[in-house]
């Protein structure tokens, strides 16, 4: 695990190798994290994987996060591991929400949930890293499944856990909790729907 100065060294070297790639760093709870531009996430991961002295060549986990109402809204986390030194580093691609940028500037009015397949331009996009880390294939599908983040260049980007006909991205924070009101005897007539 690189300590805070070690993390800054890595960030500095990355900024030299790929200008504009590292947006920020943080080191807390003993965990080091690089916040990177999603457009350059492939370059960053390749650099961390192949540069002598770094060699974080194992992708332990890839997952998505919804930081609503923060900006940029989404995060795709790449947990990298160097197995010889047993050092871990987290790369977080800060992914903005295309729908958010399109709505009112105060950010109060959020768009309704887009039906699947309606307009994939409205979904956030991140380059896929499957050719760098083959293990990312299913994990990117899972992130797509639950957060609606499109991984460009993924060989087979389909839903993986939810039914293929499912509409919506259920792990987003603005996805409604619970489907519907539970029907008991006392509200059976008041709740419209299936008994009628």
């Amino acid at each position: 695990m690189p300590d805070a100065p070690g993390l800054e060294l890595i960030a500095g070297e990355l900024r030299e190798a790929h200008p504009g790639s590292v947006l920020g760093t943080y080191h807390e709870h003993g965990q080091a994290c690089l916040i990177v531009d999603p457009a350059q996430v492939r370059e960053v991961l390749l650099w961390l994987k192949n540069t002598p002295g770094q060699e974080y060549n194992f992708l332990a986990s890839l997952h998505g996060v919804d930081y609503l109402p923060a900006e940029p809204r989404f995060g795709v986390h790449y947990e990298l591991l160097n197995r010889e030194r047993v050092e871990r580093i987290r790369v977080r691609a800060a992914v903005p929400d295309p729908q958010q940028s399109r709505t009112s500037p105060d950010g109060s009015g959020r768009e309704a949930e887009q039906p699947a397949g309606s307009d994939s331009d409205e979904l956030p996009r991140v380059p896929s890293v499957v050719d760098i880390f083959p293990t990312a294939e299913f994990q990117e599908r899972e992130v797509y499944d639950f957060f609606g983040i499109v991984f460009e260049g993924h060989p087979d980007l389909r839903r993986i856990l939810l039914p293929e006909v499912y509409v919506g991205w259920p792990q987003r924070r603005d996805f409604p909790i619970g489907g519907e009101e539970v029907i008991f005897t006392y509200n059976e007539r008041a709740v419209p729907g299936w008994t009628q």
């Binding site: 919506g168 259920p170 909790i177 619970g178 489907g179 519907e180 539970v182 029907i183 008991f184 299936w194």
Partner: peptide, 16 residues
């Protein structure tokens, strides 16, 4: 009735 799983993944009552 769906029980404690009032979420996106579980049918709220099998008699649906």
């Amino acid at each position: 009735s769906g029980g404690m799983f009032s979420n996106y993944a579980v049918v709220q009552g099998a008699d649906k």
